[in-house]
């Protein structure tokens, strides 16, 4: 369900009292409602679905997990990450 595409916020506007923004996706631009991501700053990436920004992309998280995967490629061995607290044993 739910095609949602990451894009970069270019500018902020107010339309009909709603926080709106122009989002760049690889050179094409779309308008999105920013009411659900009020803290977003120009230059940040967000996920856009049906004309609404749903979440600011967590850049640190993304960089970290990519780094982890890159290590996996380089080392040739997978490094099992620590279990998250919500995963419980049978």
């Amino acid at each position: 369900m739910c095609l949602a595409i990451p894009g970069k916020l270019l500018e902020l506007t107010i339309e009909n009292g709603l926080k709106m923004g122009t989002i760049d996706v690889n050179g094409s631009k779309t308008r999105a409602c920013l009411e659900y991501v009020p803290d977003i700053k120009v230059g940040q990436y967000t996920i856009v679905h049906a004309g609404f920004a749903l979440k600011i992309i967590d850049e640190e998280e993304a960089a970290e997990s990519l780094k982890l995967w890159q290590e996996l490629i380089e080392s040739g061995a997978f490094q099992p990450d620590e279990e998250l607290p919500s995963a419980e044993s049978l």
């Binding site: 997990s65 998250l84 919500s86 995963a87 419980e88 044993s89």
Partner: peptide, 11 residues
């Protein structure tokens, strides 16, 4: 094991 483990942390 069961439980919820997030693999889409950036979002």
């Amino acid at each position: 094991k069961s439980g919820v483990v997030n693999r889409y942390g950036r979002v």
